[in-house]
Amino acid sequence: MAVERFPVEASHIMMFARSVGDPNPIYHDEDYAKGAEPGGIIAPPTFVQASSQYDPDAALRPKPGQPWFGSGREPSGTPRGGGGGGGGTGLHAEQHFEYHRHLHPGDVLSAKTRPGKSWEREGRRAGKLKFSETITEYFDQNGELVITARSVGVQTERVVEQA
C-alpha cells in the first residue's frame, strides 16, 4: 500500500465514526469538540485504516474499466489471484496501532509501508496458515510520525470452519 497523500477531512471522520456505530460528538460536533480536552474534532482510533481510499492501487476497491472479483452477472467477475483452491482466502489476523498523537481534520498524512516478519503454522479450522506482517508509519504535514500501524494478514488453505 502506497499512500502519498491522505488528507484527513471532517466529513470522512464523521462517516467513519457512524460506520463503527460511535455517536461520540468528538468525531462530528465542532462546537462540542472545541470545549473538550482534545480542543477540536479528532479521528477515531482505527481511522487511519481508511487511508486505502487514497491508495491509487487499493486491491479491495473496484476501479472503472477493470475486472472486479465480486458478483455481477456471475457470482464472481474474475478468477481470484493467488491460486490456493479449496476456497482459501486472505484474512486480517491482527492489527496494532501506536499513537504518537491523535489526528485532526486538516492533517495531511503520508504513509511509508514495509514488510515485517512472516511465518506459517497449521490451523485447526482452516488448514495451513501463512502469516505476514506489514508495518506502516503515518507522517503528518510537518514530517512528524503520528501513528505506527502493524498489520498481520493470513492466507488460509481453506474456508474457516464455523463451530
Binding site: V20, P44, Q95, E98
Partner: peptide, 27 residues
C-alpha cells in the same frame, strides 16, 4: 477492522477522548 472499531468505542468512552497511546487486537 469493524469489530476493532466497535471495540474501540467501548475503550474511548471509558478512558476518554484522545487518551489512547496503544491499541492492538487479534481477530
Amino acid at each position: 477492522m469493524l469489530s476493532m472499531g466497535m471495540t474501540g468505542r467501548m475503550l474511548t468512552d471509558w478512558v476518554g477522548d484522545g487518551r489512547l497511546t496503544k491499541f492492538g487486537v487479534r481477530f
